[in-house]
Design a protein around this nucleic acid. Structure first.
Length: 520
RNA sequence: GCUCCUAUAGCAUAAUGGUCAGUGCAGUAGGUUUUCAACCUAAAGAUUAGGGUUCAAUUCCCUGUAGGAGUACCA
């Protein structure tokens, strides 16, 4: 039997761990991107390494106002601190590709010089024509080893003409010159050996007509210059990974090529496909960490933060979506996540987003949070009536209500009766439990606690027991109507604690109100 | 179409070349509670199909099927 060492046990200490999260500021950060950031962060911290944030904005056409701030705000909300980045600085800056534009073209030209790339002068029309022709002959429409010799580029044109075109300032791009038929393999930390044949790839553009690099070039150059040790990114990059491997080779950087780890995708909870913005709208859960307002359309996409999710819950939920610890523990704070996290325990298969579990996680953290913390979370919902009796009152009310909901945002609406007399009364209780007898008992009881100035829950409870005993009735008979008179609800927090908080004066007013509204 | 990746209950996942395949969520039943929530208990629920390798496969291999991703002068 052959013994295999765990994939990463041997070389992890070779180089300091430096990982990057490299979003492109084209809109709000999707929850899948957030998870990628999280895994990068966890991995970096686990190995006492650095977590970098690099903004990949080489495509100016797709720039979206505010998207970069959004990334920072999101990571910040979740407590994922960036070690090096645009805001944080660092020794490997700038951390925004649009500010490193002087770094890329040179490498592209170097590759041409080394015969690993070439200039291409084809017009878009010519490219379209080429693809159409190839497709018509049921060949794959690729600009590659088999088709490039019939195109207009520095491989087919004479040296003089190429020079003339370049001197003249003709538009050109640089394409990588891939080998015709070569096996390209690399070891993915999560998936093991991945094998491609170069004939399946095409001669990707490295440098665009505007002189700016494409993702592929910029990515490799920056990862190299920033001494990135591990590239942890989504599975959507897997098909272009072999191109990146070749680029490292062609640039002479293969020795320090980072290790790759391609994360599984987060899929729609129902049906098929990658989780998208629309799914959130359709199924009623956020796909974005924090609220996003589209600068062009003013369209608002809801965020976890605004929906009452706690950052810890989101982190925990995301961590477990595609990763699992070695035991059955499920509740983790960031620190214990750092201790436990390993890329080897990331699963290979895509995970459908589980809304119910997300709720459950949030509920767990809501139970741990204090009333004051929750009040801060729902600051935008707070109206004068909520704070009229002080912050402590509000916090206590929230404390009583929090275990009944999954989201902080549900708390205030649920417990409106803590802040003003009920506007609606449960109809079923009225019908079944509200009659002259009961109303009389409730009135007697409330009057007795008011007269006795019984302000504590325990005193009120004892008094109800005593009253029920004296009338030889079960106190259970009175409890729901009592709650109903005060809150209008059929259920809620422990009733005497609720009464204690609301206070005798208000309880008494509510009794009068109920009797007036529902005469018996 | 082509290439690559993936496949354990409704969902997320664990484990194993060999007794009843474990856990959480959801759902079901019961308990507890004035009520709701929480909590406790119980039952139910899965190795994609077909071939191989093997004494033995859910686990390794192949094929099919299904799903996903990629296939831009986007990232």
């Amino acid at each position: 039997m052959t013994l295999f060492l765990p994939l990463n046990s041997q070389k992890m200490s070779d180089r300091p761990v430096r990982v990057r999260f490299a979003p492109s500021p084209t809109g709000p950060l999707h929850i899948g991107g957030v998870r990628t950031a999280l895994y990068n962060y966890l991995f970096a911290k686990k190995h006492k390494g650095k977590f970098l944030l690099r903004i990949e904005d080489t495509d100016q056409k797709r720039f979206v106002e505010g998207a970069e701030d959004y990334v920072n705000d999101s990571l910040n909300w979740l407590g994922l601190t960036v070690d090096e980045g645009v805001r944080e600085g660092g020794d490997f800056g700038p951390y925004k590709q649009s500010e490193r534009m002087d770094k890329y073209a040179g490498y592209a030209h170097q590759l041409v010089k080394d015969d690993y790339a070439y200039y291409a002068f084809d017009t878009p029309e010519e490219l379209t024509e080429m693809r159409a022709k190839l497709e018509a002959n049921s060949m794959s429409a690729k600009y590659d080893a088999t088709s490039r010799m019939s195109m207009r580029n520095s491989l087919t044109l004479s040296e003089d003409e190429v020079k003339e075109r370049l001197d003249r300032g003709d538009n050109y791009i640089v394409r990588i010159k891939l080998p015709r038929n070569e096996e390209i393999r690399f070891q993915d930390v999560i998936r093991g050996w991945i094998v491609f044949n170069s004939s399946q790839l095409d001669d990707k553009v490295l440098l665009k007509e505007d002189g700016l690099p494409t993702y592929h070039l910029a990515n490799i150059v920056d990862d190299h210059l920033m001494e990135i040790s591990h590239v942890i990114r989504g599975e959507e990059w897997l098909p272009s990974a072999p191109l990146h491997v070749i680029l490292y080779r062609y640039l002479g950087w293969e020795d320090t090529m980072p290790k790759f780890a391609h994360l599984p995708l987060i899929l729609k909870p129902d049906g098929k496909g990658k989780l998208s913005k629309r799914d959130g709208d359709r199924l009623g859960f956020p796909v974005f960490p924090i609220e996003w307002k589209d600068p062009k359309t003013d369209e608002i996409s809801s965020g976890y933060r605004e929906s009452g999710y706690l950052p810890n819950a989101v982190v925990n939920m995301l961590a477990l979506l595609g990763w699992h610890p070695s035991d059955n523990q499920e509740l983790f704070d960031l620190e214990s996540l750092i201790n436990e996290f390993t890329l080897e325990r990331v699963s290979k298969s895509g995970a459908k987003f589980d809304m119910d579990k997300a709720k459950w996680f949030n509920h767990q953290y809501l139970m741990k949070a204090t009333g004051t913390e929750i009040a801060d979370m729902v600051a935008s919902q707070i109206e004068p009536k909520h704070t009229a009796r002080g912050d402590k009152y509000l916090a206590t009310a929230i404390e009583m209500l929090k275990e009944k909901v999954s989201f902080a945002s549900e708390i205030l609406p649920l417990g409106d009766y803590f802040f003003e007399a009920p506007s609606a009364y449960d109809e079923k209780v009225q019908r079944k439990k509200w009659n002259a007898d009961i109303a009389g008992h409730i009135t007697n009881y409330i009057n007795s606690i008011v007269e006795g100035n019984m302000v504590s829950a325990s005193a009120m409870e004892e008094q109800l027991q005593a009253y029920a005993d004296s009338k030889e009735i079960g106190k259970g008979m009175l409890m729901q109507p009592l709650r109903w008179v005060v809150s209008g609800q059929a259920g809620g927090p422990p009733i005497f604690e609720m009464l204690e908080l609301i206070g005798l004066e208000e309880v008494s007013k509510r009794l009068d109100r109920a009797i007036q509204k529902f005469p018996v």
